[in-house]
Design a protein around this nucleic acid. Sequence first.
DNA 1: GGGTACATGTAATCAGTTACATGATTTA
DNA 2: TAAATCATGTAACTGATTACATGTACCC
Lengths: 175, 175
Amino acid sequence: MSSQPRLTPTSYIVLGLVEASGEATPYDLKRTVAKSLGNFWSLPHAQLYAEPKRLAAAGLLEERQESSGRRRKYYRLTEQGGQALSEWRSAPTEEMTELRDLAMLKIFFGADPAQMAAAQLPARRRKLEEYEGVHELIAEHAPEGSLLTLEAGIRHEREWVRFWSGLAEEESEPG
Amino acid sequence: MSSQPRLTPTSYIVLGLVEASGEATPYDLKRTVAKSLGNFWSLPHAQLYAEPKRLAAAGLLEERQESSGRRRKYYRLTEQGGQALSEWRSAPTEEMTELRDLAMLKIFFGADPAQMAAAQLPARRRKLEEYEGVHELIAEHAPEGSLLTLEAGIRHEREWVRFWSGLAEEESEPG
DNA sequence: GGGTACATGTAATCAGTTACATGATTTA
DNA sequence: TAAATCATGTAACTGATTACATGTACCC
């Protein structure tokens, strides 16, 4: 009768993705993460095998295994799992993520800002462009939640680009 | 002769803080983190006991214990530790932290944006004000690195405030 | 002089990461 | 048909978090 283990963000990611799919294998989850969620909250694929198992043991997912061929494991929400997900999702949170940015950590400890900016700026710009491309592609049909997430990501990338631009050494115009 | 264990960000935080102090006990580190670094990269205090021990075993810190009274442990950088820190610090990184924001995760999975905004906005505003207060206090004398870190934090908080403001339900003016 | 908060640390657990392993498809 | 890549998973490790535990100083 499934004593509750601690539910982590990873747990809810799995529950949420399974809900969206109806039924999914860990590999399905992996692909979905790669496409949609992974940009702002990625997970190593091993967790997408381990976590559903935990959740199934806790009674929040139901596991079904193919009896032949690849013997894939399919998961779907149980009543209990659906309820846990709804409760979590509809509970507003004040929690605020820390920056935890490696480049900033180095700067905190005295690294040269201009040098760090030289490495960060192009990477941030690339990422920003990528996001903006995706946004254009999916703006019409994507569910509101994933659009908003993407938009938040874009805003913060823009902020990073502004920030690092300010620290980058000015390239003097040739001529 | 101390085989290198994996050095994590936590390791460099400890090395960096010890370098800044000259010599420090885990409790000193804890207080320093609480004041300066903890806002953008916090650690549970137990790690500030465990990690110096690891680093000492690896030859990057030198441990000295009081022989009486509280028998505190004092740590200072070894040559090797100083070098590891310098190398890490001066290596520019392209790595980009993901957002990993709980509220956004809930929204991704369909939570009501206005409700989430109602919880996030005041919290973000408080944090922003706090940062701005600290900034005014230390702007004159703080080392460049910690000022920049704080400024990055402020910019991102502002972005969050803008973002959630856009999602918050407009309070209709009474009258 | 008894309680409360600060100081200092250890132990146990567990989630997350890395590494390993192998079967099925596709492609050259 | 060999090589490479995709699909599917398990095992081992270890850093991070939580919980526990005790000593010292301060306060009423």
